[in-house]
Design a protein around this nucleic acid. Structure first.
Lengths: 219, 219
DNA sequence: TCGTTTACGTTGTAAATACAACAGACTTGC
DNA sequence: GCAAGTCTGTTGTATTTACAACGTAAACGA
């Protein structure tokens, strides 16, 4: 229990809630922790979900595979980040994506109904958490729109430029690292890996960018 | 004021709130209505937004144009639907898209801070509205992910199939209408209009689909 | 009614992409 | 240290797309 609290107090969901308040809430939120090995699925497309999840340790990919084996990485989940909250609404249907551990991971499960309904109108902390939940999903919403921005570009080069300039802006500098290897970046942008690799090298030859592994510099 | 209430009581945001309760809230929410002619911009990329908006009448497109004039339609807004709520969080930056009226439209503006903070912990209706807001943005989140599903398909044909099957499922039948003309559908899927038109006709010739204007049938 | 505009389909060409196959550098596990 | 596996870049080909240009039909407005 103590272990949960040290992690949770640094999450967006519990931002502004003190440790002893978190401890008080945990008793009614019925948090449980599960472990997943690299390559295992935390959630699978089609299943029902009544939980909000927080990644305690490791790294996850939210992804979708089609009939032909093309993988599309919707999003990545880093420690202390929340996911599954899009399915917190009562009328939300089945999960539309797979969530896979790309490293050995530990995930905390919260019961959605407890967060949203139990004493939500009386307990101060609960109100804060609901608002935090709203801010978090609002932020994710903006991220998704941003990703739609990359994806709506017609050519691989434009997609790369859109994504890389965005990363540069987000990391406040023209030199930065990305959380993907080549195959994962290609899956994230929904393009062919070799074609993308080719395009990256062309851009390097033209003096637009430099890179070494997953570290990039815009020129 | 009376005019607002008849519209608002049918919106997701005020679902479960009685007319007299809405009337009571409106006084503190400072709702204001603005009109926009077809082609006018309701919101522009880069501007700050401190409002949640509800479309009272007309039709809007949430879109993005790039340097080369390629338009990408992120989403469409129909009457009684809400938009701009992704920027309700205090740390959200500038608006990332344009919102354009594609018909003569009327839009109601609400002050975000009033909705989220004023008496939110004491007033029952306010709590409901915040929860409705959460459900709404949660639903939009799922829609965005679904659109990412269309966009992540590699070929125009696959994108069309993904979108059309989804519409069929949503409208519970293999015969349905879509809210786009050809150019708008192309902008929505981020493909070239003529290439898409070509592909649609090929699919018709192959006996996969039938269509007349914006009405489609899957075979 | 007539001229204008808009929407849709069609075609040809240049450009970009997917796909497969392969080579070299590097990592990992034994 | 070595073998196996992974990651990245490279190349060639077939497929697909973007773009421009044009014809037609329907809708619209004066």
């Amino acid at each position: 229990m103590k272990e949960f609290i040290t992690i949770l107090k640094k999450t967006v969901l519990f931002s502004g809630v003190k440790e002893n308040e978190i401890e008080a809430m945990l008793s009614c939120l019925q948090a449980r922790k599960f472990s997943f090995k690299k390559g295992e699925f935390v959630l699978s497309q089609g299943q029902r979900l009544d939980n909000i999840l927080i990644l305690a340790k490791g790294k996850l990919h939210i992804q979708q595979d089609d009939y032909w084996g093309n993988r599309s990485i919707i999003n990545i989940v880093n420690p202390r980040e929340m996911f599954g909250e899009a399915y917190a609404a009562p009328e939300s249907g089945a999960v539309m994506n797979d969530v896979m551990a790309v490293e050995d991971s530990e995930v905390i499960f919260f019961d959605v109904k407890k967060i949203l309904t139990v004493c939500s109108s009386t307990c101060r902390f609960h109100t804060i958490v609901v608002q935090n939940l709203f801010y978090a999903i609002s932020e994710r919403n903006r991220r998704l729109v941003q990703k739609l921005g990359y994806m709506s570009k017609r050519t691989t080069r434009e997609k790369l430029i859109a994504y890389l300039s965005d990363q540069a802006k987000r990391q406040n500098g023209s030199s930065f690292s990305i959380p993907f290897n080549r195959q994962q970046l290609a899956d994230f942008l929904s393009v062919d890996r070799s074609a993308m690799s080719n395009e990256l090298c062309k851009m390097r030859n033209e003096g637009l960018i430099e890179f070494d592994k997953n570290h990039f510099t815009l020129l």
